[in-house]
Design a protein around this nucleic acid. Structure first.
Lengths: 207, 207
DNA sequence: TAGATTGTTAATCGATTAACAATC
DNA sequence: TAGATTGTTAATCGATTAACAATC
């Protein structure tokens, strides 16, 4: 299995590879990648080797196959469709965000329990009432949900969605979900990220 | 120094400690914390020891001092004020987000280079033209900026802000910033988080 | 006293980094 | 050939986990 830290670096590699490709390059060395991304060249080679791509001494790696291999390792060569639960501040931003497409991710429906939001247009998606979730999942076969709802309700909503067939969650509410082990959960939480910055900021100020 | 993984767990501890405090508890054991958060009890004790708080055998840790110690370690006992650059989808969501206050973080001004957005009200903040950034920084002494602008311009904007006195960035654009070592940069990037989820999802499907 | 818990030291595990042979 | 680069093996580093004494 590919180590998590390596997977976290893959999106940065991808962006840079696309950039070099657009500039007309066909090959790139680990040395160059490392310099651009402030990694070490050894780390780049180790990361690349996890994709199975092999380079040529003195030249480096061929860009196009490397892009394909990283996309494949991440699963970004297949389209992943998800429903979005919650059309508040953050939910609205996600519904309108166009950057998802570059990682094969697409929000196909938005639900909110506020009747006042029904029909509201977010990008190209109309907010639907939560009463329609069950039939939507049944019909579409979607098994991936993005949770942009308050922490106080996220556990209960997630449990209901599991009952309806959802197998993976991207949870933006600041609460740990307790779900069956077969269900994938990834939490993306502003507070975690801010904690690191804040602790470093405070430590620096103290100096 | 407190290890980064420990710092990342602190916000989860804090939320649970507040919850127990509100329910009228005065003490909590590492065992209980561990069970609630799906950590091990040893890890909880190690994390707590990094704050300097000591527990009582057979009882556990006193909640109020532990909250204070974690908040202090993170620097969340001091107010941090920041300006927000960019009032697009994500920027607007941040400007309106009320959860920041619980970690001592406050956005005090929002700037956008689109004249059409000038004066727009986001929560309690009015979008200001970017021409006013220099004087705002000079007058307020703010040294923290949140970047919610496109990747294509973020490097240049950040460099300009460093010139104006900004010392720390929370960068939401998917690009690595190259700035002087004295400047703190934390990137929070949807693609990194999604990469981990996506790779796990794909690995699971393959099984 | 017995038993649950804390706190620390040592062992383990996993990722990063260093060293170096292989290649073009 | 010389030199830059790849790829791998071994060493290092840091965090997690195990073991166990100390405490109430």
């Amino acid at each position: 299995m590919v180590p998590i830290p390596t997977i976290k670096r893959f999106p940065s590699y991808l962006r840079l590879l696309y950039h070099y490709q657009e500039e007309g390059h066909q090959w790139i060395s680990a040395t160059t990648l490392a310099k651009e991304l402030s990694f070490t060249a050894v780390q780049v080679r180790k990361d690349v080797s996890a994709t199975g791509v092999e380079g040529k001494p003195k030249i480096g790696f061929e860009i196009a196959p490397l892009i394909d291999a990283i996309r494949h390792t991440l699963g970004w060569d297949c389209q992943t469709e998800a429903i979005l639960i919650g059309a508040g501040n953050l939910g609205s931003a996600f519904a309108r965000y166009e950057g998802f497409s570059s990682y094969g991710f697409r929000i196909v429906a938005v639900f909110d329990n506020d009747p006042a939001k029904e029909g509201l247009l977010l990008g190209s998606l109309q907010v639907q009432p939560v009463t329609g979730i069950a039939s939507y999942i049944a019909q579409s076969g979607v098994d991936f949900a993005l949770l942009a709802i308050p922490a106080s309700v996220v556990q209960q909503v997630a449990e209901e969605l599991v009952q309806l067939g959802i197998k993976a969650f991207w949870n933006f509410a600041p609460r740990n979900l307790k779900l069956p082990a077969s269900v994938l959960v990834q939490r993306t939480d502003l507070s975690t990220s801010f904690a690191v910055l804040s602790a470093r900021y405070t430590a620096q100020k103290a100096r």
